[in-house]
Write a protein that binds this DNA or RNA. Structure first.
Lengths: 248, 248
DNA sequence: CGCCTGATTGATCCCCATCAACGTCGGTGG
DNA sequence: CCACCGACGTTGATGGGGATCAATCAGGCG
């Protein structure tokens, strides 16, 4: 594959597509200019590793474009994905030197990185950043707990349907589209990565996707493009309560 | 069972056994006196429900004594535990009206509760509380992700061993004891609750505990008291790397 | 074309769920 | 005191869902 020079990323926070949802969401323009001082962009090609678990990590940051995964591995090679990161999601942990998980780009990826020390100092002095990060971390904790139910108690078919609803929701929110009726999206993951997220083998993933297609719950265009004729039907297959979560 | 009047709980934060580890850990004495204004204690007997998922929750708080669980349930009754709360752990989410999970006392329980509105206001004005809560939430997120590996990729035997190491570690940290060599503790959970945590059935839990006992990994006194002759051996059974996590 | 990676489908096996019986212990009441 | 009971736990027999091993297919790229 030819090497592509990383495309030029946005430089002005005002133009940033994730400005209102990322860790900087609450910052005013003065605070943004402080952030601009410590920020830089990095691009990764699909499949590239962003950091390895245990490596020193001298930045934290936000996904701007593309999708990344967090994975954990046992000595014998068993792998579990523990996070699926879409644009605006935060990567890294302030106050910790090393990466806890492998971070991998599963599609072409652009990240907005902040040098760690300055970011940590800003967190001490600027409540807006710490407040937003707390909110985002609480949301991620809820998502992780939701995923524990999927991993612990759902069948293979329900697991696949659950993953599809999550990707559909995140994709819709990127396009500010409602999550209902007919919708479609690209899978940002290989079958193997899906298996690692769901605690399954890739063969089981493949079989269950075929079964959902056979039963008309989804349609496929190629291997990666999914059409959901009826989102409610998909949610039923996921075993989810049809009505959503709790009010703010 | 006769009704026992809740025992008188500590009233002075200075005497509190979890003073240095809970959400109030970083507070100075002025801040503590603000907290004292909004706090009250509640006691629960083993088995009692603290709150039901979806119910309004007008407090947040800390576990002071005992153990509580967070569980999620599907319509058909499948249940997954998503949190196991020991003394100093935090319950509730600032900025949200309802409880996201069932909270249940699995042993006799004492909680230090803060009225929600005043606590939320304090979070805006007092960085020490918000900073500590962020730290604790990040730790819980790591724990949840660790648990995703257990649920997704470990065998029944490894799951049991993993749960035992977690309980052993939390129990040791309560007594400020080192986690190595021979140690013992009480299980704060029934076999069924363990099954709900591990994504297993109670029969499988029982069988694997018997197997670990037969193989000399653990000894039992009664049904609830566990003796671990060699903690390293238990960790190997859990499939964990023997050396711990990352530096701060 | 031939190769390689990712995906699908088939055949078989095994771990754990399920259904069922029995054991243990503490509490209660005759 | 002992029979009874219910909650909790253990153990056994059987079956199924998903893992494993293996063959084939589809598409992109040199």
């Amino acid at each position: 594959m030819l090497y592509d020079a990383p495309k030029l990323a946005p430089h002005d926070c005002g133009d940033c597509p994730i400005r209102h949802r990322a860790v900087c969401a609450r910052c005013d323009s003065d605070e943004l200019s402080v952030l601009e001082e410590m920020k830089y962009y990095r691009s990764f090609q699909a499949g590239q590793t962003v950091v390895w678990a245990g490596d020193r990590m001298d930045f934290v940051g936000s996904v701007v474009e593309g999708v990344a995964t967090l994975t954990q591995t046992m000595e014998d090679g068993r792998t579990q994905m523990v996070g699926l990161l879409f644009p605006s999601d935060f990567v890294g942990r302030p106050g910790r030197a090393g990466a806890a998980y492998n971070v991998t780009a599963t599609s072409d990826l652009v990240m907005c990185c902040f040098r760690k020390r300055p970011f940590e100092q800003m967190m001490e002095t600027t409540p807006h950043v710490a407040q937003r990060l707390l909110q985002m971390t609480l949301d991620e904790l809820d998502a992780a707990r939701e995923w524990m139910l999927v991993l612990g108690r759902k069948t293979a078919r329900e697991k696949i349907a659950s993953l599809l609803t999550i990707i559909a929701r995140r994709d819709a929110s990127l396009h500010l589209a409602p999550v209902e009726g007919r919708l479609q999206f690209d899978l940002p993951l290989t079958r193997e990565a899906m298996a690692d997220y769901l605690g399954l083998t890739l063969e089981t993933v493949s079989r269950q996707i075929s079964a959902l297609k056979r039963d008309g719950v989804i349609e496929l265009q190629g291997k990666r493009h999914v059409i959901v004729p009826d989102f409610d039907r998909l949610q039923e297959e996921a075993g989810d309560d049809s009505d959503g979560g709790l009010p703010e």
